[in-house]
Amino acid sequence: MAVKIGVLAKQVLDPEMPMAAFRIDGDTKKVVPPPNIPPVVNGFDENAVEAALKIKDGQEATVTVISTGTAFALDVMKKPLSMGADELVLLQDDAFQNTIDSFLTAQLLAAAIRKLGGFDLIICGRQASDWDNAQVPLGVAEILGMACISLGKKVDVQDGKVRVERIIPDGYEVVEAPLPALVTVSNELGQPRYPTLRGIMAATRKKPTIWSAADLGLDASDSAPRITLRDLFVPVSDQECEIIEGEDAADSGRLLALKLREDKII
Protein backbone atom coordinates (compact mmCIF):
# COMPACT_ATOMS: atom_id res chain seq x y z
CA MET A 1 0.00 0.00 0.00
CA ALA A 2 1.16 3.46 -0.83
CA VAL A 3 2.47 5.47 2.11
CA LYS A 4 0.36 8.57 2.54
CA ILE A 5 2.70 11.44 3.45
CA GLY A 6 1.72 14.97 4.45
CA VAL A 7 4.21 17.83 4.52
CA LEU A 8 3.51 21.06 6.39
CA ALA A 9 5.11 24.08 4.72
CA LYS A 10 5.06 27.80 5.40
CA GLN A 11 5.53 30.81 3.18
CA VAL A 12 8.04 33.16 4.82
CA LEU A 13 9.93 36.34 4.01
CA ASP A 14 13.24 35.49 2.38
CA PRO A 15 15.63 35.03 5.33
CA GLU A 16 18.56 35.71 2.97
CA MET A 17 17.36 39.25 2.32
CA PRO A 18 19.97 41.92 3.05
CA MET A 19 19.81 43.11 6.65
CA ALA A 20 19.27 46.65 5.39
CA ALA A 21 15.95 45.52 3.89
CA PHE A 22 14.70 44.23 7.26
CA ARG A 23 12.25 46.74 8.67
CA ILE A 24 9.66 46.67 11.45
CA ASP A 25 6.51 48.76 11.59
CA GLY A 26 6.41 49.74 15.27
CA ASP A 27 2.68 50.56 15.20
CA THR A 28 1.49 47.22 13.86
CA LYS A 29 4.39 45.30 15.44
CA LYS A 30 4.96 43.56 12.12
CA VAL A 31 7.90 43.05 9.82
CA VAL A 32 7.34 45.00 6.61
CA PRO A 33 7.74 42.72 3.58
CA PRO A 34 10.55 44.28 1.53
CA PRO A 35 9.46 45.39 -1.95
CA ASN A 36 10.98 43.41 -4.83
CA ILE A 37 12.11 40.51 -2.64
CA PRO A 38 9.62 37.66 -3.13
CA PRO A 39 8.72 35.33 -0.23
CA VAL A 40 10.07 31.78 -0.17
CA VAL A 41 9.04 28.37 1.14
CA ASN A 42 10.59 28.09 4.62
CA GLY A 43 13.98 26.40 4.20
CA PHE A 44 13.45 23.63 6.75
CA ASP A 45 10.08 22.89 5.09
CA GLU A 46 11.90 22.35 1.79
CA ASN A 47 14.03 19.84 3.71
CA ALA A 48 10.73 18.22 4.76
CA VAL A 49 9.58 18.04 1.13
CA GLU A 50 12.93 16.47 0.23
CA ALA A 51 12.57 13.90 3.04
CA ALA A 52 9.12 12.96 1.74
CA LEU A 53 10.32 12.71 -1.86
CA LYS A 54 13.26 10.51 -0.81
CA ILE A 55 10.75 8.06 0.67
CA LYS A 56 8.71 8.31 -2.53
CA ASP A 57 11.86 7.57 -4.56
CA GLY A 58 12.10 4.17 -2.92
CA GLN A 59 8.49 3.04 -2.56
CA GLU A 60 4.95 3.80 -3.53
CA ALA A 61 3.90 6.99 -1.77
CA THR A 62 1.84 10.14 -2.19
CA VAL A 63 3.01 13.52 -0.95
CA THR A 64 0.51 16.23 -0.03
CA VAL A 65 1.80 19.66 0.99
CA ILE A 66 -0.37 21.73 3.35
CA SER A 67 0.10 25.37 4.22
CA THR A 68 -1.84 28.07 6.03
CA GLY A 69 -1.76 31.82 5.47
CA THR A 70 -3.65 34.89 4.36
CA ALA A 71 -1.99 35.73 1.06
CA PHE A 72 -0.05 33.13 -0.88
CA ALA A 73 2.35 33.74 -3.74
CA LEU A 74 1.15 30.78 -5.79
CA ASP A 75 4.29 30.41 -7.88
CA VAL A 76 6.33 30.27 -4.66
CA MET A 77 4.08 27.75 -2.93
CA LYS A 78 3.99 25.54 -6.02
CA LYS A 79 7.72 24.85 -5.67
CA PRO A 80 7.16 21.61 -3.68
CA LEU A 81 4.90 20.44 -6.55
CA SER A 82 7.62 21.15 -9.08
CA MET A 83 10.05 19.22 -6.88
CA GLY A 84 7.73 16.22 -7.15
CA ALA A 85 4.96 16.50 -4.55
CA ASP A 86 1.53 15.31 -5.72
CA GLU A 87 -0.90 17.75 -4.17
CA LEU A 88 -1.02 21.20 -2.60
CA VAL A 89 -3.65 22.25 -0.05
CA LEU A 90 -3.73 25.91 0.94
CA LEU A 91 -5.70 27.08 3.96
CA GLN A 92 -6.31 30.68 3.07
CA ASP A 93 -8.53 33.06 4.98
CA ASP A 94 -8.24 36.57 6.42
CA ALA A 95 -9.07 34.89 9.72
CA PHE A 96 -5.68 33.10 9.61
CA GLN A 97 -3.68 36.27 10.29
CA ASN A 98 -2.33 35.32 13.68
CA THR A 99 0.76 33.42 12.58
CA ILE A 100 2.72 34.08 15.77
CA ASP A 101 0.31 31.93 17.79
CA SER A 102 1.46 28.35 17.26
CA PHE A 103 -1.57 27.00 19.10
CA LEU A 104 -4.03 28.47 16.60
CA THR A 105 -1.91 27.50 13.60
CA ALA A 106 -1.59 23.91 14.79
CA GLN A 107 -5.37 23.70 15.28
CA LEU A 108 -5.96 24.86 11.70
CA LEU A 109 -3.48 22.41 10.23
CA ALA A 110 -4.82 19.55 12.36
CA ALA A 111 -8.35 20.30 11.14
CA ALA A 112 -7.18 20.19 7.53
CA ILE A 113 -5.28 16.94 8.12
CA ARG A 114 -8.44 15.38 9.59
CA LYS A 115 -10.46 16.61 6.61
CA LEU A 116 -7.91 14.97 4.30
CA GLY A 117 -8.43 11.68 6.12
CA GLY A 118 -5.15 11.72 8.04
CA PHE A 119 -1.67 10.59 6.97
CA ASP A 120 0.63 7.67 7.71
CA LEU A 121 3.50 10.09 8.11
CA ILE A 122 3.63 13.86 8.48
CA ILE A 123 6.97 15.58 7.89
CA CYS A 124 7.64 19.19 8.89
CA GLY A 125 10.57 21.57 9.04
CA ARG A 126 11.99 21.93 12.56
CA GLN A 127 11.02 25.62 12.74
CA ALA A 128 10.09 28.53 10.48
CA SER A 129 12.65 31.23 9.78
CA ASP A 130 10.26 34.05 10.70
CA TRP A 131 9.00 33.41 14.24
CA ASP A 132 11.39 30.52 15.03
CA ASN A 133 8.74 29.06 17.31
CA ALA A 134 9.46 25.39 16.58
CA GLN A 135 6.07 24.53 18.04
CA VAL A 136 3.46 24.00 15.32
CA PRO A 137 4.53 20.48 14.25
CA LEU A 138 4.71 19.32 17.87
CA GLY A 139 1.26 20.80 18.46
CA VAL A 140 -0.20 19.04 15.43
CA ALA A 141 1.19 15.74 16.76
CA GLU A 142 -0.36 16.45 20.18
CA ILE A 143 -3.76 17.41 18.76
CA LEU A 144 -3.87 14.38 16.49
CA GLY A 145 -2.36 12.05 19.09
CA MET A 146 0.49 10.95 16.83
CA ALA A 147 3.90 9.65 17.84
CA CYS A 148 6.43 12.42 17.29
CA ILE A 149 10.17 12.50 16.59
CA SER A 150 11.92 15.86 16.27
CA LEU A 151 15.14 17.01 14.55
CA GLY A 152 15.53 14.28 11.97
CA LYS A 153 18.31 14.19 9.41
CA LYS A 154 17.25 10.97 7.70
CA VAL A 155 13.75 9.50 7.51
CA ASP A 156 12.89 6.00 6.30
CA VAL A 157 9.61 4.10 6.25
CA GLN A 158 9.61 0.34 6.48
CA ASP A 159 7.22 -2.33 7.77
CA GLY A 160 4.72 0.15 9.18
CA LYS A 161 7.41 2.00 11.11
CA VAL A 162 9.32 5.22 10.65
CA ARG A 163 13.03 5.14 11.36
CA VAL A 164 14.68 8.50 11.97
CA GLU A 165 18.27 9.58 12.47
CA ARG A 166 17.68 12.25 15.08
CA ILE A 167 20.30 14.92 15.73
CA ILE A 168 21.66 15.13 19.27
CA PRO A 169 24.35 17.60 20.38
CA ASP A 170 27.32 15.31 19.70
CA GLY A 171 26.04 13.06 16.96
CA TYR A 172 22.74 11.37 16.27
CA GLU A 173 20.48 8.65 17.57
CA VAL A 174 18.37 6.26 15.55
CA VAL A 175 14.76 6.41 16.72
CA GLU A 176 11.83 4.29 15.61
CA ALA A 177 8.08 4.78 15.97
CA PRO A 178 5.07 2.97 14.60
CA LEU A 179 2.99 4.82 11.99
CA PRO A 180 1.11 7.12 12.04
CA ALA A 181 3.85 9.45 13.17
CA LEU A 182 5.03 13.02 12.77
CA VAL A 183 8.68 13.87 12.18
CA THR A 184 10.42 17.25 12.10
CA VAL A 185 13.57 17.58 10.02
CA SER A 186 16.57 19.89 10.03
CA ASN A 187 18.98 21.21 7.40
CA GLU A 188 21.34 18.30 8.11
CA LEU A 189 18.99 16.28 5.91
CA GLY A 190 20.84 17.77 2.93
CA GLN A 191 20.08 20.03 0.00
CA PRO A 192 16.52 19.82 -1.28
CA ARG A 193 16.40 18.71 -4.91
CA TYR A 194 15.98 21.25 -7.67
CA PRO A 195 12.74 21.22 -9.61
CA THR A 196 13.15 19.56 -13.00
CA LEU A 197 11.71 21.15 -16.15
CA ARG A 198 9.18 18.33 -16.31
CA GLY A 199 8.30 18.96 -12.68
CA ILE A 200 7.80 22.65 -13.30
CA MET A 201 5.53 21.90 -16.28
CA ALA A 202 3.49 19.43 -14.25
CA ALA A 203 3.20 21.91 -11.38
CA THR A 204 1.82 24.66 -13.61
CA ARG A 205 -1.03 22.37 -14.60
CA LYS A 206 -1.85 21.38 -11.01
CA LYS A 207 -4.45 23.42 -9.17
CA PRO A 208 -4.10 23.70 -5.41
CA THR A 209 -7.06 22.89 -3.19
CA ILE A 210 -7.97 26.07 -1.34
CA TRP A 211 -9.95 25.91 1.90
CA SER A 212 -11.30 28.77 3.99
CA ALA A 213 -12.09 28.80 7.71
CA ALA A 214 -15.67 27.78 6.91
CA ASP A 215 -14.47 24.77 4.87
CA LEU A 216 -12.55 23.53 7.91
CA GLY A 217 -15.59 23.77 10.18
CA LEU A 218 -13.48 24.97 13.07
CA ASP A 219 -14.93 25.17 16.53
CA ALA A 220 -14.94 28.89 17.35
CA SER A 221 -15.04 28.17 21.08
CA ASP A 222 -11.39 27.14 21.09
CA SER A 223 -9.98 29.95 18.99
CA ALA A 224 -8.81 32.12 21.89
CA PRO A 225 -5.24 33.32 21.34
CA ARG A 226 -2.58 31.83 23.60
CA ILE A 227 0.12 34.40 23.02
CA THR A 228 0.13 38.23 23.02
CA LEU A 229 2.85 40.08 21.16
CA ARG A 230 3.75 43.04 23.38
CA ASP A 231 6.62 44.49 21.41
CA LEU A 232 8.81 43.82 18.37
CA PHE A 233 12.08 45.64 17.77
CA VAL A 234 15.47 45.40 16.11
CA PRO A 235 18.20 44.94 18.73
CA VAL A 236 21.05 47.45 18.63
CA SER A 237 24.63 46.35 19.03
CA ASP A 238 26.94 48.84 20.74
CA GLN A 239 29.99 46.78 19.85
CA GLU A 240 32.80 48.84 18.35
CA CYS A 241 35.18 46.84 16.22
CA GLU A 242 38.84 47.76 16.24
CA ILE A 243 40.15 47.00 12.77
CA ILE A 244 43.74 45.85 12.95
CA GLU A 245 45.72 46.98 9.95
CA GLY A 246 49.30 45.98 9.31
CA GLU A 247 51.47 46.49 6.25
CA ASP A 248 49.82 43.51 4.62
CA ALA A 249 47.38 40.74 5.57
CA ALA A 250 50.06 38.59 7.21
CA ASP A 251 51.32 41.55 9.22
CA SER A 252 47.73 42.21 10.37
CA GLY A 253 47.59 38.61 11.57
CA ARG A 254 50.77 39.12 13.63
CA LEU A 255 49.47 42.38 15.09
CA LEU A 256 46.22 40.64 16.02
CA ALA A 257 48.20 38.00 17.93
CA LEU A 258 50.05 40.76 19.82
CA LYS A 259 46.79 42.51 20.63
CA LEU A 260 45.22 39.34 22.03
CA ARG A 261 48.35 38.71 24.09
CA GLU A 262 48.39 42.31 25.39
CA ASP A 263 44.77 41.93 26.47
CA LYS A 264 45.71 38.64 28.18
CA ILE A 265 43.03 36.82 26.19
CA ILE A 266 45.58 34.22 25.10
Binding site: F22, I24, V31, I100, W131, A224, P225, R226, I227, T228, L229, R230, D231, L232, F233, V234, P235
Partner: peptide
Protein backbone atom coordinates in the same frame (compact mmCIF):
# COMPACT_ATOMS: atom_id res chain seq x y z
CA UNK B 1 14.42 41.12 15.78
CA UNK B 2 13.40 40.66 19.40
CA UNK B 3 9.77 39.92 20.24
CA UNK B 4 8.37 40.53 23.71
CA UNK B 5 5.52 38.09 24.27
CA UNK B 6 3.26 37.07 27.11
CA UNK B 7 1.16 33.95 27.53
CA UNK B 8 -2.57 34.55 27.89
Amino acid sequence: AIAVVSCD
